Computed example of a mutant assay.
Amino acid sequence: RDAFEGLRLMDALIGVKRGVPGAKLPELKQRRVRGTAAVEVEERPEEGHVRSDVAVDNPVPAPPFWETRIVKGIQLKEYASWLDEGALFKGQWGLKQVRT
């Protein structure tokens, strides 16, 4: 119902787990579920497991390396057009536009 319901539940769980005197889990709440209309499913004749004609025996390619690597020597002008300046300045750095 609100953002703190999960926090209250976690506090109660931790209290019970740690053996805090008087700590107990809240009573289970009955949820109301709206009735839905029955959906009719088309019956298909049993034809076994019909699969698509996509090949499943393709080999999985192995990556050239598993660890991380640092690439040096790339000029800023080569990747500057790929940067999302709005996400960088507003999202990552938390800068806000000054209203005048």
Rank of each mutant, 00 (worst) to 15 (best):
R1I: 09
R1K: 11
D2Y: 06
D2R: 08
A3N: 09
A3P: 01
A3S: 10
F4Q: 08
E5L: 07
G6R: 14
L7C: 05
L7A: 14
L9G: 01
M10P: 01
M10L: 15
L13I: 09
L13E: 14
L13G: 00
G15I: 00
V16E: 02
V16Q: 00
K17P: 00
R18T: 00
R18I: 00
R18M: 01
G19D: 04
G19F: 03
V20E: 15
G22C: 00
A23Y: 02
K24D: 14
P26E: 04
E27Y: 00
E27H: 00
Q30T: 11
Q30R: 13
Q30W: 05
Q30H: 07
R31A: 12
R32E: 14
V33P: 00
V33Q: 03
R34D: 01
R34L: 02
R34N: 03
G35E: 14
T36E: 13
T36P: 00
T36S: 10
T36Q: 11
A37K: 14
A37C: 06
A38D: 11
A38P: 03
A38E: 12
V39W: 05
E40H: 08
V41N: 02
E42I: 15
E42C: 04
E42H: 06
E43Y: 08
R44N: 09
R44P: 00
E46Y: 15
E46P: 10
E46G: 08
H49V: 15
H49D: 07
H49R: 14
V50W: 00
R51I: 10
R51A: 14
R51G: 06
R51H: 12
R51E: 11
S52T: 14
S52P: 04
S52F: 06
S52R: 13
V54Y: 03
A55T: 07
A55V: 11
V56L: 15
D57Y: 03
D57W: 04
A62C: 03
P63W: 03
F65C: 01
F65V: 03
W66R: 13
T68A: 07
K72N: 07
Q75D: 15
L76K: 11
K77R: 13
E78A: 15
Y79K: 03
S81E: 13
W82G: 07
W82R: 13
D84I: 02
E85N: 08
G86I: 06
A87E: 13
L88C: 07
F89M: 06
F89V: 01
G91E: 14
G91I: 01
Q92A: 10
Q92V: 09
W93C: 09
W93R: 08
W93D: 06
G94W: 05
V98P: 03
V98W: 09
R99T: 11
R99H: 09
T100K: 15
